[in-house]
Nucleic acid binder design. Sequence first.
DNA 1: TATTGTTATACTCTATAACTATA
DNA 2: TATAGTTATAGAGTATAACAATA
Lengths: 187, 187
Amino acid sequence: MTTPTPDSVADTTLGWSLAVLLRRWHELTESSLTDIPHGSRGYHVLTAAVHADPPTQAALAERLLIDRSVMTYLLDDLESAGLVRRRVDPGDRRVRRVCATERGREVLAGARDRVDLVEEQVLAGMDGPSRALFRASALRAAIAIQRSSPATDPCAAVREVTGGGTGAGTASGGPRAPGGGRARRGA
Amino acid sequence: MTTPTPDSVADTTLGWSLAVLLRRWHELTESSLTDIPHGSRGYHVLTAAVHADPPTQAALAERLLIDRSVMTYLLDDLESAGLVRRRVDPGDRRVRRVCATERGREVLAGARDRVDLVEEQVLAGMDGPSRALFRASALRAAIAIQRSSPATDPCAAVREVTGGGTGAGTASGGPRAPGGGRARRGA
DNA sequence: TATTGTTATACTCTATAACTATA
DNA sequence: TATAGTTATAGAGTATAACAATA
């Protein structure tokens, strides 16, 4: 293909690029979203909460890739900041739906403009057309991931990729599970 | 399938996509790199260490976006695993250069194949041409970021973007500096 | 019994600061 | 004095587990 620079950076592959991009995005948004509790996290929650059909806490947690318990703290702070409100679902009283308040919508509008600027900054290394394409591709890939594995454990996915036990899979019984991966959730 | 869903996901923008992609990349690589201490981190270090001109620890830390102190622990483990070796630079005896051992090269070769598979999996939502384009664009943007801000504090960058004090910048004196951003490093 | 959400706890990762050695 | 690296400590973020309420 295009052989992207044969030098030192070629091997660092996709992971490094993504890490740098996300890191930068996170740095800049955190600095620009000081009016929203938990910065970019709160921003994402708020974004999801303005919709007509308010999401449940569990749905939010899954979409935002964070734990349900973390979501509780997050919403506590957003709620006491007056940006969202928890409403008990009449149909299932176990469920709380997260709705944005009027003030939440206002804050979000301002925040969104700032985030847009930040994102242009993050993609500054690309020309215009590439940026649009990049965003679209990233979104499509992310959606595919979310769809294919909302709760899939990574070990299974790796096994599927590598074909079985290529040497470093989980065949040995999983000698390393420091907490990062949520393997064996159902066992 | 174009028009990437105008609904709930449209507003979540770039940050969410990147987070999902990186998360997935991290999950899969961590599961597939059990033979390298610190998983993807160790992989990245090892990748940088095979080069003809061995990097210093500081250079590694900067490139990999981690702290110098963390790099010490990382290298301790990689070294005792026999994958890299620290060599004192004859020209400046304060500096240690990180070289991959023979075994390190072997392990890396196998790991790289697995990572390649993982990355294809991560980008599964895109068609072939898009993948190549995406990788190239991501790399270009990441390099631009590294170039423009190896040690730039995010606050300055935001100020530059927003134009001064658009309301949520750091003009108020930085009420929020929980440790994530490394602002005011020189002060 | 299963599920949603809360609470409390523990753990991992990362950053900060003080220290040693070289320059 | 300034820099590279190490060490020890503290902090933030995150996950885990036990619990209450509802289905």
